[in-house]
């Protein structure tokens, strides 16, 4: 079967609020007909404004929430199939937003061992996995520490190690950096990228920080429960106007390039890094300087830019 590690077909999910007599009071459609296929080994970023359904989708992946209609398969297993639920949760590990509310152990290494313990892994093997996982996220030096003594970024890396110890093939991270400072955010994102490259783990990163998306293999944009954009970061970020309609910001550099281009500067679409922008701007600047030295008057549009 040519099916990716995560596949959703015609997925619909309703949050249903009931009153005391169990009558339906309010139905809130969080996901509305989502079709998606994610290839094993990819680093996929899911973008979306608050209430776009991206977190709800994350919870569908390991069966915390089950579809109202449609189907989700995790490496071929249906999430609605009760007999596979633990296999699914083992295959697709999950890291949540709040670092404090997902650490169970009172010592770092005990927390990392929590998952394998639940899976019934033999003691020796648990220790080996804890060792490897802490190594993989660079937290070995903190193994005997209390989680309360760690910074937010470190706690989040412990949480990632806890998932890694279950030997998942895929990790879903639901806004893992939303509560972190810039340094912690960088550490966590670097860790995830390393796991993706070195261990070949499929990553599904749900975020609303555009900077974290640039190095992804694929970017998916969700809005109001629908999948509205899907492509490489460069493809997505060259559609600045569209992104703004979905109330998403683009990276600062992309925004600058977009505004410059609007003013008539000859730049390529979808600039993602400062380096790229410099590379594109320097020749233009040289050209202009040369023109000026040769006494050729510059174009009106360019002058306009110089003033701005």
């Amino acid at each position: 079967m040519s099916m990716g590690i995560i596949k959703a077909s015609k997925l619909i999910f309703d949050y249903i609020r009931r009153d005391e007599e169990d009558r339906i009071e309010e139905v809130n459609r969080a996901i509305d007909g989502l079709d998606l296929d994610i290839r094993e080994g990819d680093f996929v970023a899911v973008l979306g404004h608050n209430g776009s359904g991206k977190s709800t989708f994350a919870k569908q992946i390991n069966g915390i929430l089950l579809p109202t209609e449609g189907t989700v398969w995790i490496s071929g297993m249906k999430t609605t199939d009760d007999s596979h639920i633990w296999d699914i949760r083992k295959t697709a590990g999950m890291v949540f937003q709040n670092p404090d509310n997902q650490i169970i152990g009172n010592v770092v290494e005990e927390d990392v061992g929590f998952g394998p313990e639940n899976l019934g892994v033999p003691t020796d093997e648990i220790w080996r996995r804890v060792e490897e996982s802490l190594q993989a996220v660079g937290m070995t030096a903190f193994r005997m520490k209390s989680p309360n003594k760690l910074s937010g970024g470190q706690k989040q890396r412990v949480a990632i190690a806890g998932v890694m110890a279950m030997k998942p093939r895929c990790i879903v991270l639901d806004e893992p950096t939303a509560m972190l400072d810039p340094n912690g955010r960088k550490d966590v994102i670097r860790t995830i990228h390393e796991l993706n490259k070195k261990e070949g783990i499929t990553v599904l990163l749900i975020t609303h920080y555009m900077e974290e998306v640039i190095e992804a293999d694929r970017v998916i944009v969700m809005d109001d429960g629908h999948l509205v954009m899907d492509g490489t970061p460069r493809e997505i970020f060259s559609r600045v106007k569209e992104l703004k309609e979905y109330r998403l910001d683009v990276p600062q550099v992309t925004e600058l390039a977009y505004e410059l281009k609007k003013e008539g500067v000859d730049l390529p679409d979808g600039i993602l890094t400062i380096e790229e922008l410099t590379e594109a701007l320097v020749p233009l600047f040289r050209e202009q300087q040369a023109d000026r030295e040769n006494g050729i008057p510059t174009g009106g549009q360019r002058e306009h830019v110089n003033q701005g």
């Binding site: 915390i64 949760r89 929590f114 998952g115 019934g120 003691t123």
Partner: peptide, 20 residues
């Protein structure tokens, strides 16, 4: 949140659980 995180990490009571 914690209950969800525990379930996501395959916690299902004491049966079949090993010890680190």
């Amino acid at each position: 949140d914690l209950a969800m995180a525990m379930e996501a990490r395959c916690y299902h009571g004491g049966d079949g659980r090993t010890k680190m």
